[in-house]
Design a protein around this nucleic acid. Structure first.
Lengths: 234, 234
DNA sequence: ACAAAAGTGTTAAGGCTACACCCATGG
DNA sequence: CCATGGGTGTAGCCTTAACACTTTTGT
């Protein structure tokens, strides 16, 4: 059969907003762009979609190239297609966002791309419309984290309640009451208490917890209320 | 400057999931596909993105062509790019979904496309991955409507509480208690009571309400709780 | 023994659900 | 006058937010 012959074809890229938590701060992974235009400027990691790969597949490939990581949390965010967004040639970009535990993977970064982790709150200017993508990812993260247990994707397999709370506080740039916080978290039934304490950051030590994976997967899409007054914080 | 010369270009389409409410039932607008492959089969309305238009723009153009309507509620849903999704040539499709008041626009449909409104619950088989798009739109609609006043986009400027409740019941395929429903709706402060009754569907007549537009726009993104037990219904 | 962080309980207020009766009107 | 759908109130329960003291242990 014929192709749709009269139509114009476009480049399709995927761009990844890669966020990581190191136990204290939320960070974003950026690369120094290797091609013109804007060579040497900071940019999201991205790449062109290849003839035989799907969009999710392309995003996973790009992530793997950069971080050596596979099977981390990733979801499609939004597609950007303003005609002028890439000045060289019109490119439609499908943005993905990725959450990972930064403590584990810090050192595995590919040298090839001159990648660097920046504080999400204070990162360099980005090329094209990447800043808009990052803003959208931030607001989506806050929105989703207020309703679903998505932030666990940023933590190690075992973690303490204080660590979890710091993460929430970092994401929402605010402080929560630890009594209410722990009650709310525990009431979800998502956490299993381990018989082991983290003793680095305090004398008393804080119990480790891990996710109840089955419960987590089964209830991930349920609407919970992790955040006291979400509308003030989103 | 040079183009990104070694990369493959692809067709980009937009496909619109157009939902309407006629006061009683939720419907979806489908067209008989005009081109091969699958000519004559039912399909979402779509079209190829043109060289100088953005994605949103393309979606609006497609919607305008089909319905004569402009400025109705529309948002980007998701992009679909599996290599085999269109058997003729690889096409990435950006799906949009649209909500409109069906009572107003029923008759303005373009003849050119042989469009028809179907019950959302019971529509014909669709080509390609359009069924998947419709399913995603349905679940997104339920999700979003449980948290945001999005369903008002499906109603006329003035409407009665019973009409609004029917709409919610249609969307969630369940029944709600009218006392709790009206209390919840009214407590949002989104509605203004008019001094006028709808007398078609009852002897007593039901008061018309309209949206408080300012309040609506300002609070649209706030998280509300329209639905009693959303997790059972999503 | 003290400093530093972890862990835990209570109360009061507001929100939620379940539930049943009266109202207005057209026929 | 009665059938039909519209409109409203309350009581009990649960959830939430606000709030402060005790525990552990390394130094």
């Amino acid at each position: 059969m014929n192709k749709y012959s009269k139509q114009t074809r476009f480049l399709i890229a995927v761009d990844c907003i890669i966020l990581g938590f190191d136990g204290a701060e939320l960070k974003i992974l950026l690369i120094k762009r290797g091609l013109e235009p804007e060579q040497g400027k900071w940019s999201l990691m991205g790449g062109f979609v290849q003839p035989n790969e799907g969009l999710d597949e392309a995003a996973n490939r790009v992530l793997l190239q950069l971080t050596g990581l596979d099977k981390v949390y990733m979801e499609q965010l939004h597609s950007f297609g303003e005609p002028g967004r890439d000045p060289i040639e019109r490119t439609i970009s499908v943005a993905y966002f990725t959450l990972l535990d930064l403590t584990k993977y810090k050192t595995q970064l590919s040298q090839e791309f001159e990648a660097e982790w920046f504080l999400l709150k204070k990162h360099p200017k980005l090329i094209f419309d990447h800043e808009q993508m990052v803003q959208l990812a931030k607001s989506k993260l806050r929105y989703k984290a207020s309703l679903h247990p998505i932030l666990f994707e940023l933590l190690a397999d075992k973690f303490t309640l204080p660590q979890l709370q710091s993460l929430f506080e970092e994401v929402y740039e605010t402080a929560f009451d630890k009594r209410n916080f722990s009650r709310k978290i525990m009431s979800t039934g998502l956490l299993l208490k381990l018989n082991e304490k983290e003793k680095e950051s305090s004398k008393k030590g804080a119990y480790y917890y891990k996710l109840d994976k089955k419960h987590y997967k089964a209830n991930f899409h349920n609407i919970l209320r992790f955040i006291p007054n979400p509308n003030e914080l989103l």
